[in-house]
Simulated scan of single mutants.
Amino acid sequence: MRILRTEEWADPTPHAAREVRKALPEAPTEHAPVLFVPGFGGGAWVYAENWLAHAASRGVPAYAMSPRGHGESGAAPKADLRAYTHDVVQVAASLPRQAVLVGHGAGALVVAQALARYPARAAVLLAPVFGGWGPAFGAWARNPFGVTPAIFGGALRPRRGQLFSPETPVEEQREYASRRGRASARAQWQLARHRGPEQPVGEPPVLVVGSPDDKLVPAKELDRVARRYRGSPLLFPGMGHDLMLDASWREPIDAILDWLEKNP
């Protein structure tokens, strides 16, 4: 754990408007709030479609945020990974109780970085993209036409078949794809060069969730990230990368909420 972060005071992260959506249980609850963080190009909406209301129906206060430059948050074309991490920490700190952090894709790396700055109750890393040249090259090999624009500062364009299972209706896949934005070019380059996050504060329990049929994150990458947190990944065969929007979205969120009940 780093005590002194010279970059934080020498080059402070500028303020940005942040979108936060929420769904709260009807009755008072003792459950810790859960803060959902999207991956690059996503926004709070990816969780608001299904997971927020479902978590609230099970008595869990659920929040979803859009880091700067994503969703309905303020524009930030020059944002970096540190700025996204700052946004997660600031929103988590504003919640009424110590929160559980859940991040998807590259948002899982942002959550992992936030864990070194915020004492989370627990964390869940969904289909985590932790970066590095090896995974970046693998992503390019699987989808060169979609990844090459990102190398030169453009938007990453995953194929619909990489994001969803065949059971997800095509019209839904197209609608979700049309709502995707993009991360900053700087953050995309940092992701490719990233060597891994710092150790969490307080050693919170961390669960890695994914699918062995994910066309973006191979099973060996899920294993690698899970080993980092001394665990094994929880797998959902047949699902695509966007677990929260896939046709079988109930299965992973129920498993996550069950896991949180066992780790109060």
Rank of each mutant, 00 (worst) to 15 (best):
G238M: 10
P264I: 09
D246P: 03
Y229Q: 04
R21C: 04
N50H: 12
G181Y: 00
R58C: 12
V208K: 08
L216R: 03
F152V: 09
G71N: 08
R180L: 13
L245I: 03
A155V: 02
E49V: 13
L235Y: 08
E221Q: 13
V147P: 01
A16I: 08
V201D: 05
I253K: 03
R174E: 12
A185N: 07
A76C: 01
P205W: 01
Y229P: 13
R82Y: 13
L125S: 07
V170L: 15
P166C: 05
K262N: 08
F236P: 03
W9Q: 12
G131S: 07
I151K: 11
L4I: 14
P169N: 11
L235T: 15
R159M: 07
P61H: 09
L257N: 05
F40W: 12
L109P: 01
R18D: 05
P33S: 07
S165M: 10
P14M: 03
A219N: 14
W133Q: 15
L191T: 08
E19Y: 01
L125C: 07
P128T: 07
L35R: 11
V170D: 04
D87N: 03
A23W: 07
W249D: 04
D11S: 07
S165W: 00
H194R: 10
Y229H: 13
T29F: 11
G146C: 02
V20N: 05
L52Q: 11
A10C: 09
H31Q: 14
E167G: 12
K220E: 15
R228G: 07
T6C: 11
G154C: 06
I3Y: 15
Y176L: 00
R142N: 13
G39E: 03
L260I: 03
P33F: 01
L101V: 02
V111H: 10
A23H: 14
P264Q: 13
A122P: 04
A177I: 04
L95K: 05
E7R: 15
G131N: 04
A32K: 13
V46P: 05
L234V: 08
V225T: 07
S73G: 01
N143M: 01
W51Q: 00
A106G: 14
G74S: 06
L95C: 03
G161Y: 09
P200S: 12
P158R: 00
E171H: 12
T6F: 14
H31L: 09
S66V: 11
H241Y: 05
E261F: 07
V100L: 08
P12V: 04
D246Q: 01
G41W: 02
G71M: 05
V89M: 12
G105W: 00
G69E: 09
L191Y: 00
A185I: 03
G59K: 10
G107K: 04
Y47M: 14
L4C: 09
T85A: 00
A155R: 13
D258T: 11
G131Q: 02
W9N: 05
M239R: 14
L109W: 02
E221N: 12
P197N: 00
G154T: 04
A10Q: 13
G132L: 08
G153L: 01
P205A: 02
V89G: 13
N263S: 05
P38Q: 00
E251L: 14
G74A: 14
A120E: 01
P204Y: 06
P14Y: 00
F236I: 05
V209D: 03
E221C: 00
A219Y: 10
K220P: 08
L191W: 02
G74C: 06
